[in-house]
Amino acid sequence: MDENEKLDELIDSYLDASMSEEERVAFEARMANDPELRKEVDVQRSIIKAVRKERLEQIISNEEEKIKNKGKIRKLFIPVGSLALAASLLGLFYVGYMNSCENLASRYYAAYAYTPPPSRGGDDLALTKSDSLFFDALLQYENNNTKVAITRLKSLLDSDSEMLVATDLDIKWYLSLAYLKKGEKRKATALLQEIVNMPNNEYQGKAKDLLKEM
């Protein structure tokens, strides 16, 4: 680790309040005599705040979406005429359908386990952009940003870019789960059928079982 990397870690410790009292006093004395270091710390503090703020905004936005949807579903239950009753039953069915698709997808989902090959002479294995996109897609899936996950996985299937961590088969499996989670059963079925038809692959058994349950 070079000196700059050590400084980055030191700034993190300071901002995290994980330094000892002695270390903190010494670091603050150093900052008082070094305006450039002071600026570096201020910027890093603001970056950390920005990361937290962005995540909080997302949490709040998700909750507002739930509140809005609750309001929409509540309207379906106003007992005014048989049309309203039919509409509420439809709403119930939709909620039940979505819940069952989500439950099914979550039962078959397992986090992707990538085992890198042994390193050569201590060099780090450089992941490609497509590899990063794949992992990001799974992260979006796990965070219930299913639409984004689908977009990312589809783009990976459509591109010819080099990937180290996953194959087309892996992508198809996770894409089928993402479609199912979103309630797009037809698209999920089509992909799962492709997987079943490919000879002797690790997802074949699971794909068959999932198709039976669907």
Partner: peptide
């Protein structure tokens, strides 16, 4: 800074979220 963090690409954005 807020805008710059939002526009960060991957994997940097994910790393910073996981750390901070």
């Amino acid at each position: 800074i807020q805008e710059a963090v939002k526009e960060m690409g991957e994997p940097c954005h994910t790393i910073l979220v996981k750390q901070y």
